[in-house]
């Protein structure tokens, strides 16, 4: 087999292992969480939420939900889902089996990492689909909310989600390594939670651009002076990708050297 087939085989297998796992359900529940709250909010309080004439209600509707998700829900989801996906292997003491198979070790590590990243992409996609669906649902129930008369600003909204996604990758690299290394899933979970809270406290500081756990918050605000608001790759995105590559590589080198017990 070639390197490519090793990699695709490994990745496809990782997805098969996700069938019927809690990680799978967590992805759907997390993506639904805020849209459901907004569904109830708009159904109950629709009288106060009727937009002024000629204003697109979608902008406020979607940006508010993204803002609600970014500080805590998104990073906690990342930490949890990464731990859970890797935990499937620890729970079945699968590593000793995988590392004794005729497949390169890198394909195991990066195949699983790919599955994690894809799961996160799926979560973002579902989140967006659910937000738009909820908008149309409440719009159809209460026409005066004007959701049906306007269309969502897809391009700008997706850009905002994309920035958040790239900003989160630095954490993914580190959390994945920690989860892979430690059989006890409380440790990466604990470390992740503490660092996320730290990120929330320090993100306003200038030095926060070096702290990947603050990047998701920073992805909302254009703190770099590049442009006023929405560019696809703000500074934190570049740093986040850098951290992702760095941690993934260190993680792989570490796992490759490690004794599998």
């Amino acid at each position: 087999m070639t390197a490519i087939t090793h990699y695709t085989t490994s990745t496809v297998n990782e997805f098969q292992k996700l069938k019927r796992t809690f990680a799978f359900w967590l992805t759907i529940i997390s993506a639904l969480f805020i849209p459901i709250i907004y569904l109830l909010y708009y159904l109950i309080k629709y009288k106060q939420l009727i937009p002024t004439e000629g204003v697109n209600p979608w902008d406020k509707f979607i940006v508010e939900q993204i803002r609600a998700a970014v500080p805590l829900l998104v990073p906690m989801f990342i930490v949890l889902v990464t731990s859970l996906i890797v935990q499937i292997e620890h729970k079945s003491s699968g590593l000793k089996h995988l590392f004794a198979l005729p497949i390169p070790k890198w394909s195991i590590y990066f195949g699983k990492l790919t599955a994690v990243v894809c799961t996160i992409i799926i979560a973002y996609t579902l989140f967006f689909i659910f937000m738009v669906s909820v908008g149309y649902i409440v719009g159809m129930i209460h026409e005066e909310l004007k959701f049906v008369s306007f269309t969502p600003n897809y391009f700008e909204n997706i850009k905002l989600l994309f920035r958040s996604f790239i900003a989160i990758l630095g954490i993914v690299g580190l959390q994945f390594w920690l989860s892979f290394r430690m059989k006890n899933f409380i440790i990466p979970l604990g470390i992740g939670t503490v660092l996320i809270v730290t990120g929330l406290i320090v993100y306003r500081a200038e030095e926060a651009v070096y702290f990947p756990y603050a990047y998701n918050m920073l992805s909302l605000f254009p703190i770099d002076k590049d442009l006023d608001s929405l560019i696809w790759f703000p500074t934190v995105s570049i740093y986040s990708l850098g951290y992702f590559l760095l941690f993934s590589l260190i993680g792989y080198i570490d796992i490759n050297r490690k004794n599998i017990t």
Binding site: Q16, K19, I88, S92, S93, L95, K96, H97, P102
Partner: peptide
């Protein structure tokens, strides 16, 4: 490794499958 099949201590199996 291609020519080896191994069962090491308790078997590595995915319980949810």
């Amino acid at each position: 490794l291609d020519k080896i099949g191994a069962l090491i201590e308790n078997p590595s199996l995915y319980g949810h499958l």
